[in-house]
Design a protein around this nucleic acid. Structure first.
Length: 419
RNA sequence: CGGGCCGUAGCUCAGUAGGCUAGAGCGCCACGUUUGGGACGUGGAAGUCGUGAGUUCGAGUCUCGCCGGCCCGACCA
């Protein structure tokens, strides 16, 4: 994409009302725009990141054997009458429809997915089933905060699994854990599985995926003896400051999986015949990842004083190509032609390039924007590099710069992409 | 939902004790010069001072209500 065509712009000054690094940097670089507290527009650069995260999630969910659907975000009240949750979910947005009907905006989807799957599952032979969706969720948070980390409308992937017996559920649950860890690793996040309370659904523990960072609002306790990681909510209060027993870190919860047991299958009278012909209860699990929160978390973890530092896997573009300006028309033409050739050459081999082709913008401004936007690889073409028939190569994570011949550059980038 | 901070140009902010035509930097527009770390000169456009009421001869400034944002806490099925 040519930067001259990008309708968004970077800002020289950080926004005054964005304190957290993710809100400040994403806004300053033109990735997101705030509409209200906890409500954001994803601009072209930000949307590309969000989509890449969603696609990584998709790939891992598909590999797990789950099937993607898209359920409505507008939920009729009667579903919640079946589970008695209409007045229990206090973050639920409720609205009135025509004819006195009542609806809520999706804050979760157990009430939709359970009847949905029930439509198609008639026997133990139809199980297990795992379905997921990636959809915006709405939660009337008393206090939205920290940019993308806690919003009132946010992207969430929610997966639900249905099983004929406990052993099958546990097997799937463990595989889901691995799939989740794969997602975080691929997104450049170092997440740990953390035991947490089971909430209202189960006596068992649920499991969270926590990324240790001071930007987090959770506290994880790492048992120094066993290595087990636990959320503070399941630590006895007298041990909250026991640093001899636990290593304590602040962290962001980037995912949560938990057993639902038969809470929802019972509420919707979902039972099927087992192998012996007798009706069996259906055991469910539920598994959530917020792609928008993952995006914010990546920025919290990967940034420096100059801007964001995107991992290659989720960067909006892999390469930032900078054409520096020259007063000499002849030189300028050579810069433009070499840049155009490289831009096309990279696109032809499938490399995503943001080309800073803006005329007349000073080198300092282009470098500043490149650092702020934080694409993994910066390539510069200028009078200086063309003297050597070369391009300057600099990775965002390094201060090293070196020249690569124009004749070799596409192959070099292609090889770097495979790393 | 409790507590705190804040709202003045597109952005970041200043605005003394209430005082007459409301300021700066950046950005933007025009022209010229400049081009390897956010260049410079000259000229220009741009503001119902969040909003409503009140006090006052006079309100960006004081009082109250409302709206909105950020932070701390509670909450986070």
């Amino acid at each position: 994409m040519k930067q001259s065509h990008l309708f968004t712009k970077t800002r020289k000054d950080a926004p005054a009302d964005a304190d957290s690094p993710n809100a400040r940097l994403l806004t300053q670089a033109g990735f997101i725009s705030q509409l209200a507290a906890g409500i954001y527009t994803y601009l072209p650069l930000g949307l590309r990141v969000l989509d890449k995260i969603k696609n990584i999630v998709r790939e891992e969910m598909d590999a797990l054997g789950a099937q993607e659907v898209l359920m409505p975000a507008l939920h009729p009240k009667h579903l919640y009458d079946s589970t008695d949750r209409w007045d229990k979910i206090d973050v639920m947005f409720k609205l009135d429809g025509a004819g006195g009907k009542k609806y809520s905006l999706s804050s979760t989807a157990e009430e939709v997915v359970t009847p949905l799957v029930k439509e198609f599952v008639n026997s133990y032979k139809d199980l297990p089933v795992a379905v997921y969706q990636i959809q915006d969720k709405f939660r009337n948070e008393p206090r939205a905060k920290s940019g993308l980390l806690r919003g009132r409308e946010f992207s969430m992937k929610d997966l639900y699994s249905f099983h004929a017996d406990e052993a099958d559920f546990l097997d799937f649950y463990e595989k889901a854990k691995v799939a989740y860890l794969n997602v975080y690793t691929r997104c450049g996040l170092d997440a740990v599985v953390t035991a947490a309370s089971g909430g209202v659904f189960t006596e068992k523990h649920s499991h969270e995926f926590q990324v240790a960072t001071d930007a987090g609002e959770d506290h994880i306790y790492i048992d120094r003896a066993s290595g087990e990681v636990m959320n503070r909510e399941i630590i006895p209060e007298e041990d909250w400051k026991n640093e001899e027993k636990y290593e304590i870190k602040k962290s962001i919860e980037v995912g949560n999986i938990f057993p639902l047991e038969c809470r929802f299958s019972e509420a919707f009278k979902m039972k099927v015949p087992g192998a012996d012909g007798k009706m069996v209860d259906i055991i469910m699990g539920c598994y959530g990842i917020g792609p928008s929160r993952v995006m914010g978390s990546i920025v919290e973890v990967h940034n420096d004083e100059r801007g964001m530092i995107w991992p290659k896997s989720v960067a909006p573009f892999a390469v930032h190509l900078l054409s520096l300006s020259s007063k000499d028309e002849e030189v300028q033409n050579r810069i433009d032609n070499a840049s155009e050739d490289l831009y096309q050459g990279l696109k032809d081999v499938g490399v995503e390039v943001l080309w800073d082709d803006r005329p007349g913008v000073s080198p300092g401004a282009k470098f500043g924007d490149a650092d702020l936007i934080g694409l993994p690889l910066r390539l510069v073409i200028s009078q200086k590099t063309l003297v050597d028939d070369s391009v300057e190569w600099k990775e965002r994570t390094s201060t090293d710069m070196n020249l690569v011949k124009l004749s070799d550059i596409v192959a070099s980038v292609d090889a770097w992409m495979e790393e």
